[in-house]
Nucleic acid binder design. Structure first.
Lengths: 338, 338
DNA sequence: GTGAAAGCGCTAACAC
DNA sequence: GTGTTAGCGCTTTCAC
């Protein structure tokens, strides 16, 4: 593979001159520049970023840690981050952890090893003290948390107003005449899940409905838990007339459970879901959802990270960006039950 | 940030000794090793991969070029590749091109610049001569094409037997009694699209059905084209009783079109789709699909690439892995039309 | 405007 | 076993 040296030799100039045309920082005469550029083309020269990174102590690469790209919530988040990153000349490396804290630690370590300039993290549910993130910050690598914030760590973040979203949605169900609204909650270890739960509880209380503990089930944000808990709830003595799933995957699980039980949606049981669900408006039942600006979560997160990198943010205090959820009412909550 | 030098100083050993415990290639006495490891922990030391890469001329990083992670076909492919990569100690960097050949060229160049050890590519439709891929190969970086193969380039690949999948599916539609089966084709520039089209044509011919040119529409594998073409077809004079979409996105578009036209599926128009569609078995109508082993495409591709990297493949001839599609019959093709 | 040289952090001979 | 040293390819003063 050609190096800067080969280019210099072929162009008949010195090593430094080649570097100068590469960086553009030092002016080079047109004639020499042309000779250098031709040599590069002829040699199919490609700058060695590793060498440059070593020298510059920057890699122009961002790391992104998510739970699972296969979860339909993430592709848009990733895309948002990727777009923002590439606009600023950064490369994005994504790694899945499957919500394993152990994997998360290992993965963050690998990212540091590669000297990523910054890291975006969707923390794992059990993420307790998050020493690995604290250490990363201390080492001078900015970290931005997306969608979820670990407890007890002052860190930049981009999240959605989960409380508000859950409030809106539950109020909607109440307005549709429902009194027995089952809640399929996410991992209790996550603030995100707790906020959504709080929204359900609060909205019910507002309407003078005593939140029946029997209508609350807590899962782990995965499809299977939504499936099991929904089945469980619908088979209980005081079955709900409506279900509110704390995220998209659990919502899909709930839908599957309803179908297996032969319950029609919304006629027998209404269903609302926190999170957009792909093609929710193409398939039946068209789902009522609390839509999160997934793309924006990724984009804003990357933008924030890059601003930190460029020192554009003076404040040492963490920046917390809160995005607005949107309630999209569709047919899955249309029917009204007495 | 701590370097190997800091560790050596703190542990009271020489630079080389630290490197030896790092690589494990040279035996180090237990006592010294312990001291070194403690020093690393205390300093929160993280090896600098850039420096190592520069020295070793390997980066343990693979690049992956896809069209759009937001297309539900890709997350599984990516996940398969990522799993295989991480099992072998590689990192995976993914970039979207939105099927732009220009982006693809730029992106491959960036990947070379970062000295990725190997590259997985889902080539852009117009990918003509693919000089950029040829150059990459010539530079000694293995490239594996996934899902699509560029014309006129001898290159490793992992694809699905598209012809067979389209044959199976069309035969199924014929068996269900359909005679007027509309085909929503993909980008004609892609072999993948041509094979699927050929399957449709061949299956019809087999059954003595003259493929009506009026029932063929060619799009670009994107949702919008599926939507437009399906609408177009269904509004034509001799409307089809069944639709076969050449990929998942186009299938979703077609479904949307049917709904807007007030056509029920499968009662008015049956629909079959090439590609799995996420949660096709949870929503209505449950879609009949030609399922591609998306995860395996990614995994096998990465495995193949890594074998090349390790020199485990002697042959200079390209390896072509062909995976089997599977026809999954569901309710969207259930109804039979005269 | 151009070139020479030091050094980024690490590895792998090689000598001790 | 352990330590010393010469680069890997690039950037960047600093002379010319």
């Amino acid at each position: 593979v050609a190096t800067i040296k080969d280019v210099a030799r072929r162009a008949g100039v010195s090593l430094g001159t080649v570097s100068h045309v590469l960086s553009g920082s030092v002016p080079v005469s047109a004639v020499l520049r042309e000779r250098v550029e031709r040599a590069m083309r002829e040699l199919d020269y490609h700058l060695n970023q590793n060498a440059r990174n070593l020298k510059l102590r920057r890699t122009n690469t961002l790391g992104m840690v998510i739970s699972d790209i296969t979860n339909p919530f993430f592709p848009l988040v990733v895309r948002g981050a990727e777009d923002a990153a590439s606009e600023s000349g950064y490369l994005l490396t994504i790694i899945d952890t499957d919500d394993s804290l152990e994997r998360e630690r290992a993965v963050v370590s690998v990212l540091r090893t590669h000297r990523m300039d910054g890291v975006l993290v969707v923390v794992a549910p059990q993420s307790g003290v998050a020493v690995h993130l604290r250490n990363t910050l201390r080492a001078g690598t900015p970290v931005v948390c997306l969608d979820r914030v670990p407890a007890g760590l002052a860190i930049d973040s981009v999240v959605v107003d989960n409380l508000k979203g859950a409030l809106m949605c539950t109020r909607h169900l109440v307005a549709m005449g429902h009194r027995r609204i089952g809640f399929l909650g996410g991992s209790p270890g996550l603030q995100t899940a707790r906020d959504r739960l709080l929204g359900w509880r609060t909205a019910l209380a507002e309407s003078g409905i005593e939140p029946d503990p029997g209508l609350l089930r807590e899962g782990d944000f995965r499809l299977d838990s939504g499936y099991r808990l929904a089945k469980d709830l619908c088979l209980s003595r005081q079955a709900p007339t409506a279900l509110f799933a704390a995220n998209g995957m659990m919502g899909l699980g709930a839908l599957k459970a309803l179908q297996e039980l032969g319950l029609r949606c919304p006629e027998d049981v209404a269903l609302a879901v926190f999170d957009d669900v792909p093609s929710a408006d193409v398939f039946r039942p068209h789902l009522t959802v609390v839509s999160q600006p997934a793309y924006q979560i990724g984009r804003r997160g990357a933008e924030l990270l890059i601003q930190r990198l460029c020192g554009q943010i003076r404040s040492r205090k963490p920046v917390a960006i809160v995005l607005e959820p949107e309630l999209i009412v569709r047919e899955s909550t249309a029917g009204r039950k007495p």
